[in-house]
Design a protein around this nucleic acid. Sequence first.
DNA 1: CGTTAACTGTTAACGGTGTTCACCAAAGCG
DNA 2: CGCTTTGGTGAACACCGTTAACAGTTAACG
Lengths: 241, 241
Amino acid sequence: MDLSTTGTRRDRQRAATVAEIKAAARKLLVEGGASAVGLRAVARELGLSAPALYRYFASHEDLISAVIADLYDELTAVLVALRDEDAEADLGTRLFLVAGGLRDWALAHPAEFGLLFGAPVPNPLADGHELTPNHQAAMRFGAVFKDLVAQVWHQQPFPSPSDESLGPELVAQLQQKSEYFDGMPAGAVYLALNYWTRLYGLICMEVFGQLHWALEDAGAYFQAQLYEIGEALGLDCPLPE
Amino acid sequence: MDLSTTGTRRDRQRAATVAEIKAAARKLLVEGGASAVGLRAVARELGLSAPALYRYFASHEDLISAVIADLYDELTAVLVALRDEDAEADLGTRLFLVAGGLRDWALAHPAEFGLLFGAPVPNPLADGHELTPNHQAAMRFGAVFKDLVAQVWHQQPFPSPSDESLGPELVAQLQQKSEYFDGMPAGAVYLALNYWTRLYGLICMEVFGQLHWALEDAGAYFQAQLYEIGEALGLDCPLPE
DNA sequence: CGTTAACTGTTAACGGTGTTCACCAAAGCG
DNA sequence: CGCTTTGGTGAACACCGTTAACAGTTAACG
C-alpha cells in the first residue's frame, strides 16, 4: 500500500509524523537500550514538546507497542527474504538460513530483540483479552517457522515419537495444534515445538549474556545445536566451512 | 553464623533493619512485579522516609542487587535440599528432582525468577570487571547442576559426540571448560551444556508466557523434554505416574 | 563522668519521568 | 468568509531516584 497517496493531505502529513516519531524512538532504543526511549526523549529528538506526542499516541506504552509491532514485521520481512533468496534451495537449507538469520538479527539488534522477546507476554487465551496487534504480528513472525516445518513434514514426513512415548495429556494438547500445523500428527508437532523452543532458548541465552560463563563465542555451539535439531526433522546439515 | 549475637547492639539492629528492608522489597516484588519495588515504595512499606534507605544501601540498584543475591542463595538452598532429600536416590533421579524443582520454583515465584534470569547479564570476562557478588551467587547456583552432571559422568561416562562431529573451534572452547567440569572431555561438556541450555530455555519460555500460544499447560511437555535431555546423559527416566 | 564522634533519622530540594489541562494558531472545509 | 478540527504550546500534578543540610540518639573515649 502506498501511504503517501492515501487520504487527504493532512492524513499524509500525520502518517509521516507518526513514522518520524517511531524512527526517533527506535534510534534511542538502539543507542541507549529500552530504558532510553522515554516520551520526553523522543519528543526532544524531533524538537517537539512532550505533550505533542499525545496527539499521535495515547500513551508511552502505546508508542513502544507500535514500534514493537513494526519490529516484528521488519524481522519477519528479513526472514522471508532470507527464505526466498535462493529459488533452488530445498526446504532444509531454507530452514537453516532462516534460523541463522534470526540469530544474526538478534545479535545485530540486541536491544530490539530484548524488546520483542525479552519481556514477559500476557496470556492472550485468558478470556476477555482481545488479540492485540502485537500478538498478531508475533504470530505472523512465528508462522514463518511453522510454515517451513510443516512444508518439510508434508514433503517428507520425518520420524516422530509415538503417542505412547509422549503420554496422553501431552498428546491431547499437541493434537489441538494439529490443525494449525497443517494436519501434522502429535509426534510431529512435538518435534516442531522442540525445534522452536530450542532455537528460541538458545538465541535468548546468547543475546542476554547467559552463555558468557561457558562460551566466549557461541557461534560454533549454535551451529552444532542447529544441526542437531535439524537432524530430528530429517534434514541434512549444510557443511560447516 | 549467628548474626543475632555478632557485633555490638547497634550492629545487630542495623542487620535487622537491612533484613527488614530486603523483606519489604521482596514483598513488593511478589505483589507488583519488578517495577513495583521502588525506593520510596520500600521506605513507605516500613514507615521510613526515602532518604533513610541510603544509610543502608548506596543506591536503588544496590538494593535490588542485594535481594537478587539473596534470591540466588535461597533458590540454591531449595535445590540442594531437594537434591539431598532422599539419601538413597541415585544421581539420575537427583538430577530430575533438581531440574523439576527449578521449574516449580520459577512457576511459583515468577517475579523473582524474572529478576534473576530475565535481565541481560553483563559479560564478566570483559576486562576491568570484578566478579560481582551476584555473579558469584549465580555461579554457586549453577554449580548445583554442574556438580550433578559431572558426578553422573564420573560414575558412568555417557556416550558423547566425537570431537570430529563437533568441529575444532567448538571443541577448543569446550576443552577450556573441561577443568571446571572435573575433567570431562569436550563431547561430555557439550552434552552438559546442552542439558543446561535446554532446561533454562524451556523454563524461561514457560514462565515468560512464550509457550501460551502452543500449550496451555506446559508441564507434560516439560517432563517429556526432561526425559529426552536426561536420556542424552544416559539416565533412565522415572515413570510418569 | 562529660565530651566527642558516629549513626540514624528527618525535611527540603533538584532534576527526571509520564500525563493532563487550558489555551492558541493554523489548516481544512462548507 | 466563518467554523471546526487538528497540532502545537507551557504550566502543572504526582511520582521517581538522589543529594544536602540538619537534628536526635547512641556508642566510644579521655
